[in-house]
């Protein structure tokens, strides 16, 4: 048994009368890729927003590295080594690529000035270039260009390269292959494998079941705010997983055409 990087128990979150998260429990092991699956509105994004500090759970428990933690803000989550790429755009379109890459963690000189410290422009540009080289987008894109001039796929690549830089223990990706072309999609899947190889844990949300089988070790399935299944993917198949997502046994039904 590997050690758990993340363990959540009985998380609950409502928005007014809507209970988005009822009874969510599962864990992510060290170096493991876990796919979080479920139909639209199942509560996947809400769950990862709780883990990444965007929302606070109404009740339940989150443990990181075996210790129960209180994640009150996105800062807390980042300090615990959790990096998240959200489904809704996580970039500021009016800022340059470089400034987006380091948003909230700008390299500064005279750090004692706190938020009033001057950004170290040279370091910012250097670091941005190195990072973009690693993701293979440095040739096409200028680090000083505003993000508003990029395509959807290019933006996704920027968001992913941002998650790479801080060597987080756990990287959460909410539908990262949405709106991506074939090549970019493969880039994301390659990124997931590389991060796993480097020892990071990954929580990966997607509606594409084939991607799940390509990169994930285990699937956690949610329905109406609850975790309804948690199974290793080795020895499982597409039909079984799809059936669990929909809550029907597809194999029991007579096969069509």
């Amino acid at each position: 048994m590997t050690k758990d990087i993340l363990r959540i128990s009985n998380l609950r979150k409502s928005f007014g009368s809507v209970t988005a998260l009822k009874n969510a429990s599962f864990s992510v092991g060290e170096g493991e890729v876990v796919a979080l699956l479920g139909d639209n509105g199942a509560g996947k994004s809400t769950l990862i927003k709780v883990i990444s500090g965007v929302y606070r759970a109404d009740s339940g428990e989150i443990a990181v590295n075996g210790a129960v933690v209180d994640i009150r803000s996105t800062r807390d989550a980042m300090a615990l080594g959790i990096e998240t790429i959200h489904q809704d755009s996580s970039l500021a379109p009016d800022l340059s690529i470089a400034r987006n890459l380091f948003l909230g963690r700008e390299p500064v000189t005279m750090g004692w000035l706190g938020p009033f410290a001057p950004i170290n422009q040279v370091e910012l540009r250097e670091a941005a270039r190195t990072l973009m080289q690693r993701v293979g987008i440095s040739k096409r894109l200028n680090a000083d260009a505003p993000v508003s001039t990029l395509s959807g796929g290019e933006r996704q690549s920027i968001a992913i390269s941002r998650a790479m830089q801080f060597a987080a223990k756990l990287i959460i990706l909410d539908e990262p292959t949405n709106n991506l072309g074939v090549e970019e999609t493969h880039g994301v899947l390659r990124f997931v494998r590389e991060m796993k190889a480097a020892g990071h844990s990954i929580l990966f949300i997607t509606h594409n079941i084939h991607h799940v089988f390509q990169v994930a070790d285990r699937a956690v399935i949610m329905r109406r705010g609850e975790v309804v299944a948690d199974l290793p993917l080795a020895g499982s198949d597409v039909l079984k997983v799809e059936g669990l997502i929909m809550g029907v046994d597809l194999k029991a039904e007579p096969a069509h055409g």
Binding site: S52, V54, T84, S90, D94, N100, L103, G104, E106, P115
Partner: peptide, 21 residues
């Protein structure tokens, strides 16, 4: 300054800025 980057980011996409702490 760092704060200027935050100010522009908040006006540009508040959720993105919050997600970055």
């Amino acid at each position: 300054a760092k704060i200027g980057n935050w100010i522009s980011a908040i006006g540009s996409n508040r959720n993105a800025a919050v997600a970055r702490g």
